[in-house]
Each structure stands twice: as C-alpha cells, then as structure tokens.
Amino acid sequence: MKGIYSVLVENRAGVLAEIARLFARRNFNIESLAVGETDRHDTSSMTIVSSGDQRTLDQIEKHLNKRIDVIKVRRLEERDALSLEMMLIKVAYSVSTRSQIMEICSIMGASILHLSPRHMVIELHAAHEKIESFIDLVRPFGILEVQRTGTISMSRK
C-alpha cells in the first residue's frame, strides 16, 4: 500500500534530518520526500510518500505526530489527493530524432527549456506515473541527466 503524508513542521534547523532519520531508524520506506516553506516563514510543509502494510502506514502517521517539531500530519487518500511532481531532464538528440522528441513533449505536455546543438533540457510537471512514462519514452534517445523534485500533494477537500 501507498501512504501519502502531508506534514506541517516547524521551519527549524535539523527538522528535515530528524524526519529522515525517523524513517531510517524505524525501517519505514521513503519513496519520495519534498519540502519547502509555506506562506509562513516559521512553517514548512513536507509531502512524504511511503509504502507498507496498513500497520506500518499507521505507525508512520503516529510517529510523525509524536515529533514535537511536527505541527500537523494529514494522511491523504490517493483518490482524494492532487499530486504533482516536477522534473528537469536532459536528453540527447540528433537532427533525425529532434522532431520525434518534440512530438512526445507536445503530447505529454512537457516544454523544452533549453536547446543545445546536441541536447535539450525538458521540463515536465505531472503526476508521478506520467513522469515515469515520459522517462521511458525518451530513454531510447539517450538520457544525460535527470532531476526530480519528488511528489507534492494536497487534498482536494
């Protein structure tokens, strides 16, 4: 099972490390973790995606809540969550492959941020699965570098 946690934390030194260590120490899995400030400077928001059986996912929520620097934990149901990930991907091209790649970008809603004589940098923000498919689609052309933010999520409610 997948668990998506939207976690409000104190924006303080060491809090990210503390949360990461909690997962490591208790053998909880981290599939992705994204963190940034909210509209308040003293508060950060994290989206943590994990997986495990029901008991593990419950324990993750409880142990997050137990941290004193954690202000609030929301467990998001996959169907209720709007989830998005951003990726920058550098792909090699030649004259013969350029238009194919551009076609994939256009179908997938990705945009080309930068074009060099031999490679291009593409930006895509989409759901996790779509990002995965995009990577598969451009893999044959030669991927030079990938940077992903990890998933951020918000409840529709």
């Binding site: 008991r55 419950d58 324990q59 409880k62 809540n65 137990k66």
Partner: peptide, 11 residues
C-alpha cells in the same frame, strides 16, 4: 499516553 505505542508491537 503515547499514541505511537498503540499498534507498534501488538494490534
């Protein structure tokens, strides 16, 4: 008193 103790070692 510790919520995280519940379900940790016994359901």
């Amino acid at each position: 008193i510790d919520t995280a103790e519940i379900g940790k070692n016994i359901g």
